[in-house]
Design a protein around this nucleic acid. Structure first.
Lengths: 153, 153
DNA sequence: TAAACATATATGTTGCAACAAATATGTTAA
DNA sequence: TTAACATATTTGTTGCAACATATATGTTTA
C-alpha cells in the first residue's frame, strides 16, 4: 500500500531505525501517537480554558443526563483510571461547568452533574474536531480499535 | 475472530457503548491504551527509581554509544517532543546515570552520554518486559504500527 | 564589524499529578 | 451492638510539567 507523501513513519519521527521486534516498535508507536494526539488536543482545548481530562469528564456527565453520578462512577468511566477526580471536580466546579449535591442515600457521596454552562461549552466546541485529527477511514479505524483491544489482552 | 475470554474491549473499559464514529472510538482507544501502558510502565520503572521518560532518554543515549549527543538532539528523538530535556538531564545527572561535558565546538551546547551506572541500570532492567506487555503477534504488531503511522498522516 | 537574528540551554513561576494518609460514612458479622 | 472492615471523598506533601523569559553563544548580513 502506498502512503501519502506527507506521512512520517515512527522511525523517522524518533530517528530510530532498528527495533528489537515489531511488538516493541508497536509499543513505542502507541506512546508516540498518544503524545502526538494529546499535544494537539491540549492546544485545542486550551482556547476553551479546559484540559483534555476535564473535557473527558464533561462528556461523561453529558452522556449521563438527566441523571447525575458519583465521583467514583466518573472515575470508572475515565480514560485515565489514575485521575485525581476529587480535585478535577473542584476545578470544574470553580469554573461553574459542573455542580455537586450531597447524595441523600449515601452521605459519603456526591451526585455530580453538568451545568448549563458546561453544556454550552461543549456545544460551542466543535466536537467533530476530534474526528478530523486522525487520518483514517472508518474501516481502518475499526481495525485499529480491534488491535488495540487485543494488545491489552 | 474470537478474542480470548479475558480481553476487555474499550466499550467495557470506559462503560461507553455508543461512539460518534469508528474514528472517534479509535481516538479514545489510542489514549486509553497509552494510559494503560503508561501506568504499567510507571509501576515497573519505579522499582528502579526512574520514570518511563527517563528510561527513554537512557535508551537513546545507549543507542548513540560511543558517541555523545546534545540535549537538542535528544529531544528530537524522544517519544514526547514536549519534554523539558534540560531538567530531565539534571535529574539523571544527579542520579549519576548520565554525564555532560561542554562541547568544544559550540560552547552553548553540552555533550551528553550515559555512564557506567546508567548502562548497568539498563542491563539490570529486564528489557524484554516492554515486549511482554502487549499481547500481540509480530504480524499484528506490524499492522498496528502501520495504522498508527497512517492515523497521524 | 556591528546589528540583527538564530540556536542551545537554563531558570522562575504556576499549577497539576502522584502518593499517602485522613475523615466520614456505610456494611458485616461475632 | 459494637468491632472490624469497606467505601467515598478530601487533603497534605512532594515533585514534575508547562509556559514564558533569560542568558549565552553562534551565524548572517548590511
Amino acid at each position: 500500500m502506498v502512503l501519502p507523501l506527507f506521512t512520517m513513519k515512527l522511525e523517522e519521527e524518533i530517528q530510530q531505525h532498528k527495533f528489537k521486534s515489531p511488538v516493541q516498535k508497536a509499543l513505542l508507536n502507541i506512546i508516540y501517537t498518544a503524545n502526538w494526539l494529546q499535544n494537539k488536543q491540549v492546544a485545542y482545548f486550551k482556547t476553551y480554558g479546559i484540559t483534555p481530562t476535564q473535557f473527558n469528564i464533561l462528556r461523561i456527565l453529558r452522556g449521563q443526563q438527566p441523571n447525575s453520578i458519583s465521583a467514583t462512577e466518573i472515575k470508572s468511566r475515565m480514560l485515565d483510571k489514575n485521575s485525581d477526580v476529587s480535585r478535577l471536580l473542584d476545578r470544574l466546579t470553580a469554573k461553574n461547568l459542573v455542580a455537586k449535591q450531597t447524595c441523600p442515600e449515601d452521605r459519603r457521596a456526591f451526585n455530580v452533574f453538568i451545568t448549563k454552562e458546561g453544556l454550552s461549552l461543549l456545544a460551542n466546541m466543535d466536537e467533530s474536531v476530534d474526528e478530523n485529527i486522525l487520518s483514517l477511514t472508518n474501516d481502518q479505524a475499526k481495525e485499529l480499535s480491534r488491535l488495540l483491544d487485543l494488545s491489552r489482552g
